[in-house]
């Protein structure tokens, strides 16, 4: 996606560096070629989708499909549900991963590979396997347990208004991305010295985490949040198989009836995602500059 943001590269103009033979210029040319290829790869489907949505059979250009998005039934509900799920997932995944990554780095560096493997595991489990497991677990509650808190919990996590079970599933799916991002961010600061300096000045461990480590990891946390949000806004398999009406599922549902509208929604959701990325990364960048 990053390749889509307009990048100002100074193109190598052939023949402008007379003294030096082509060698130092070469990488630039290749950079341009790679950028172009990547741009084509990403842009062509996007432009094709866009053209499809604005081309009405009779009157040429029309933005009607985009207008219809907002009036389509279930749009607002499903979008808000997905955003809510995304927010909840971000909070939980950060609360889980950040202290774990910090603790391992400070207290048990030898366990780092273990944490890394555990956090990467969700990438290798196919979503279909994952969801099969979840639905099996959800069917555990036999009827004679109907009056117990256990059964009620199982019912509660499947509330279609806000399915907590999806949040839990997404937390697992988001772990690899959150872990990578936070671990890289932690690598950029000298956590040990900073936390020791803060301890030496009387700070308790929670204080160290909130006042010293978190403020210096804003951009890494923004990155983790963005990846998580992108994941939640695009996740289809699990939501669909557990029959929850999230945004991607809604897009799929209406695509049967209004093909044009569904593609318009896809383009629209990409746009939303980019705007969120922009907001998050600029928030991170502002923190970096420190003022």
């Amino acid at each position: 996606m990053a390749s889509l943001t307009p990048q100002v590269t100074t193109p190598a103009v052939p023949g402008t560096a007379p003294a030096r033979p082509g060698r130092p210029r070469r990488p630039r040319v290749w950079r341009g070629v790679v950028l172009l290829l990547a741009a084509v790869y990403f842009l062509v489907p996007l432009i094709a989708s866009f053209v499809f949505t604005v081309k009405a059979p009779d009157q040429g250009f029309s933005l009607d499909a985009y207008g219809e998005i907002f009036s389509a039934e279930g749009f607002a509900g499903s979008l808000l549900l997905s955003l809510g799920l995304g927010a909840a997932t971000i909070v939980i995944v950060l609360l889980l991963t950040l202290p774990a990554v910090v603790a391992v780095r400070l207290g048990a560096p030898r366990w780092r590979p273990v944490l890394e493997v555990v956090c990467t595991l969700p990438l290798v489990v196919p979503p279909i396997t994952f969801v099969a497991g979840i639905s099996t677990v959800l069917r555990w509650g036999p009827d004679y347990l109907a009056s117990t808190p256990f059964y009620q919990t199982i019912i509660a996590v499947q509330d279609p208004g806000f399915p907590i079970v999806l949040v839990l599933a997404y937390v697992v799916l988001a772990l690899p991305f959150a872990y990578r991002s936070l671990d890289a961010g932690l690598g950029a600061i000298d956590v040990r010295t900073l936390s020791e300096a803060a301890r030496n000045l009387g700070a308790s461990w929670p204080h160290v985490l909130l006042r010293v480590i978190v403020p210096n990891m804003r951009s890494a946390m923004a990155g983790a949040s963005f990846l998580t949000l992108a994941l939640v806004l695009g996740e289809f398999t699990i939501a669909r198989l557990l029959s929850f009406q999230t945004f991607p599922v809604w897009i799929y549902t209406i695509s049967g009836a209004h093909a044009q509208v569904s593609v318009a929604v896809s383009v629209f959701s990409l746009l939303i995602t980019w705007l969120l990325l922009l907001a998050l990364s600029s928030a991170g960048a502002r923190q970096r500059s420190g003022s």
Binding site: D190, L194, E196, A197, N200, G202, A203, V212
Partner: peptide
């Protein structure tokens, strides 16, 4: 006694100022 309850100020070998705080807030951290 835990490190944060000891009466000793320390200066470290590597640069240890909090990058997100200015000099005044660094000094005022404790």
């Amino acid at each position: 006694v835990p490190a944060n309850r000891r009466d000793a100020g320390m200066v470290f070998q590597s640069y240890s100022l909090f990058p997100n705080l200015n000099a005044r807030d660094n000094v005022g951290f404790g």
